[in-house]
Amino acid sequence: MTEAFLLAQAVEFDVASNIAFAIISIVMLYSAFKMVTTGNVVHAALYLVIVLAASAAVFILLGSDFVGATQILVYIGAIIVLFLFGIMLTKAQLGDDDSVASEKRSMGALVGTLLFVVMAFALVDTFGNDEINFGDPEPIAFTPSTVDASDLPTPVREALFISADAGEVELTQAQFDTLEPEVQRRVPGAEVFGNNKQIADAIFSQYIIPFEAVSVLLLAALIGAIVVARKE
């Protein structure tokens, strides 16, 4: 909640978030690079954890804390464990995996670089310096209520010309609407209509069919995995 609020103010904290982004991305890319190059399989899995965690951080940085949380739960919590199981079950050498043939490596590097160049060109060409605008206020719901004036935050009181010793005051919708968004958030009874709620709304209304499909897919994958891996 507070995080979401802070992120909403990201425009003002641009420098700080940029620094955060830089650190996150460096860590992420370094780990990703190590992951695809290291010889040790277990190390690779651990590097993957870091990458996933870093990308969770990126999600949070972007204001999608729900996705970030999911990422950590599902990926780091479940998928990585699956991987580790896989590693152990296949009895892959826990130490050195393999020495990748050099022509293969150069081929991969070539394709990867090519891919990156094309994408980077396209991205830069298309989006240039488009900013992500965090400035749009999230919708704030307000339920009229009666509060003690001394409980009101100072900015609210000042904005509504209510003295601290006014005692019980009734806040009306009309009064609320005159306030600046920053101030509105601090009014008791105001509820920031946040990200998570929106996501939930979306998933369970607009995207209900895909959601169900994914559920079925997971079930099918579960059964399929069992069938495939089952000993004859």
Binding site: M28, D97, V111
Partner: peptide
């Protein structure tokens, strides 16, 4: 923050992933 910094980060990650897919021998 500009959009491209995330997209480019993703692009690098993607390319690294492709590199990995193409080069790693271990399934």
């Amino acid at each position: 923050m500009i959009l491209n910094q995330f997209l480019l980060l993703a692009a690098v990650l993607f390319s690294l992933g492709v590199y990995g897919v193409l080069t790693r021998r271990n399934g």
